[in-house]
């Protein structure tokens, strides 16, 4: 990949996030590090409860109660050099969000303000970031065109649009200030398969054209493998594996959980015979297993390798990596 040597647009370092509960803080994201480069499409996958959405919201500092960030860095490289989003003044944070890093949230209906026209909601973002008034109308028209919506959509209210159109509007709003990075938190859960595909292809195309990096969070692993360049797999609040799509397609997943996830989805090219679910239940964050959090469900877990009692370290090779004690051992 050509992205190896450049500074990433966003580098998450050791991010730790807790939810405050009656019994005390609950670790939901536990020391995750992740790089995203310009023009790269990174897929972030994992079971529900693996912490992927929490990671995204925390990295935007948009995680609501009872979430709290306990440590780490979210380094953004922009015109002012590299800045840590977690250590910014409120004023700077207000500037940086949306102009440098934007987000497409889960439900397009819930994300839009029902009493304002699409145009006004986009213009609100432009105004907040000092775009001169003369640029508003042309920019809205451009954006409608980029997301393949008829220009008159801008004058509609959200309830007049279909689910797919709403999601396009949300994407248009997200790229209104030409961010360097776009978080997409399960952007297509409420949409049917055909619309889902259209939306993801649109994002991939926009990313190529405008050069912004994308982190795509989704349950739909096969679709993710179709559009993304790199895939990050989370398990129990930690990063399990970071691999290129090519490697995974070639069957080169190194973490047993990644292989398990792959086997649990039907391949896009037929071959449904070998569908296998991963045995056992998702990890409990209240009482996570010691050692590797995946070990109770892992066929390769082995006491002598330390799976049961030592947290597996992150083994980095080039940009990729894996957190598994037995990753380098033969099957």
């Amino acid at each position: 990949m050509s992205t190896k040597t450049r500074t990433p647009v966003m580098a998450i370092r050791n991010l730790v996030v807790d939810y405050v509960t009656q019994e005390g803080p609950l670790r939901v994201v536990d020391g995750v590090s992740l790089d995203v480069h310009a023009g790269e499409l990174l897929g972030l996958a994992g079971e529900s409860g693996s912490g992927k959405s929490t990671l995204a919201l925390a990295a935007m500092r948009a995680l609501g109660a009872p979430g709290v960030i306990r440590g780490g860095e979210v380094l953004l490289s922009g015109d002012n050099g590299v800045e840590d989003l977690l250590r910014m003044s409120p004023a700077r944070l207000q500037e940086v969000r949306w102009s440098d890093v934007a987000m497409v949230v889960q439900s397009a209906m819930g994300a839009l303000n029902p009493v304002l026209k699409v145009r006004d909601q986009i213009i609100d973002a432009l105004v907040a970031h000092g775009v001169p008034k003369a640029r508003h109308a042309p920019r809205v028209a451009e954006l409608m065109q980029s997301v393949s919506l008829p220009p008159e959509t801008a004058d509609a209210y959200p309830h007049q649009l279909s689910g797919g159109m709403r999601q396009r509007v949300v994407i248009a709003m997200a790229i209104a200030l030409r961010p360097r990075l776009l978080w997409m938190d399960e952007p297509t859960t409420a949409l049917d398969v055909i619309v889902e595909r259209e939306i993801l292809e649109l994002v991939a195309e926009l990313s190529r054209k405008e050069g912004f990096g994308v982190v795509l969070i989704t349950h739909d692993l096969p679709r993710m493998l179709e559009v993304c360049d790199t895939v990050a797999i989370m398990y129990g609040g930690r990063l399990a594996e970071l691999a290129t799509v090519d490697v995974i397609h070639r069957g080169g997943a190194r973490h047993p959980y990644t292989s398990g996830l792959m086997a649990a989805f039907p391949s896009l090219h037929g071959d449904e015979s070998a569908l296998q679910a991963i045995p056992g239940d998702a990890v409990s964050l209240r009482q996570p297993p010691t050692g590797c959090r995946f070990h109770p469900r892992c066929a390769r877990a082995q006491a002598s390798s330390g799976c049961m009692d030592r947290t597996p370290p992150w083994r980095q090779t080039n940009r990729l990596g894996v957190a598994c004690h037995r990753a380098d051992e033969p099957e």
Partner: peptide, 22 residues
């Protein structure tokens, strides 16, 4: 608690605008 408010905040709108307009 709605996502529209989280989004309005991320968009960089001033707290006053989020409070009244959104």
């Amino acid at each position: 608690g709605d996502e529209s408010i989280a989004l309005a905040r991320m968009k960089g709108l001033s707290p006053r605008k989020v409070m009244w307009r959104y």
